[in-house]
Design a protein around this nucleic acid. Structure first.
Lengths: 131, 131
DNA sequence: GCTTGACCTCAACTGCGCTTGACGTAGTGC
DNA sequence: GCACTACGTCAAGCGCAGTTGAGGTCAAGC
């Protein structure tokens, strides 16, 4: 990965580095772990800020304990599971709903994922009230 | 959703609108479908450009046929499936690998998802060669 | 010794996906 | 009939996640 990204992560406090006498960055093993986890979290769709939040309690400088890693991993599970469920829903709706050609604005779960919004009028700015 | 987003999509050619005598935009049913599909595709992680590409063969102005929708949905399935697999991998690796505390730089699949890179030296810029 | 390239800092820039603002018009409610 | 709001255009701005460039330093190879 690009060194500029590492510097950027460091500027955000996501990772830390030690310096050589010549002021070059050296990354400890634990930092490489953090980076791997950061990239993985990005694949899940988390922002760097969310990732930083997920790292609270996991030391930036020192080697974290196994318990700390485990706690963090546990914190992430729900977000990952949720994201997987979301995608499975999109997949099923794409094949089930669009695939079948129904696409009813009133009934289709693609338009109306929460099954809310029965017949509350037709105000504008109403499609996807919250994401 | 915000009207500004609709105008933006229109500026990209993702959707089309008819106009009233007073120059206001009116969106046909099929456009509302398109919008729903666009939002769904974004949830999957596709960029608007990728989404536009996925829409080739699906008319912007007229009502697409069921066959056209179906073809498009079929084009997306692989991307969605892949994304789901990715996330499942991240989930399993987070609980299996970090959870277990191994985190070996050489063996951990989190660092080395393709199982490539045996022992090719330790050049820099080597972590995650392609995403 | 000297060149070469990888690193350093810091500020400015990029691309995406919109949003905001300025300024003007259209149409609905009272 | 008049106020008010939602819409119209267009350009500029924002937040995120970095990248790029200018100007300088460090260290390995010849």
């Amino acid at each position: 990965m690009a060194t500029s990204a590492l510097r950027y992560y460091e500027s955000l406090g996501l990772i830390a580095s030690t310096r050589t006498t010549g002021d070059r960055r050296r990354y400890r093993r634990t930092v490489l772990r953090r980076i791997a986890v950061i990239r993985a979290a990005q694949r899940v769709g988390l922002s760097l800020e969310e990732i930083r939040d997920a790292f609270v309690g996991v030391p930036v400088e020192a080697a974290p304990t196994r318990a700390q890693w485990t706690r963090m991993a546990a914190r992430w599970r729900p977000a990952i599971e949720q994201r997987i469920l979301d995608l499975e829903k999109v997949r099923d709706e794409l094949s089930g709903c669009i695939g079948c050609g129904c696409l009813s604005l009133q009934r289709c779960r693609l338009y109306n994922p929460q099954d809310e919004l029965g017949a509350e009028g037709s105000g504008s700015r109403r499609l996807f009230p919250d994401g």
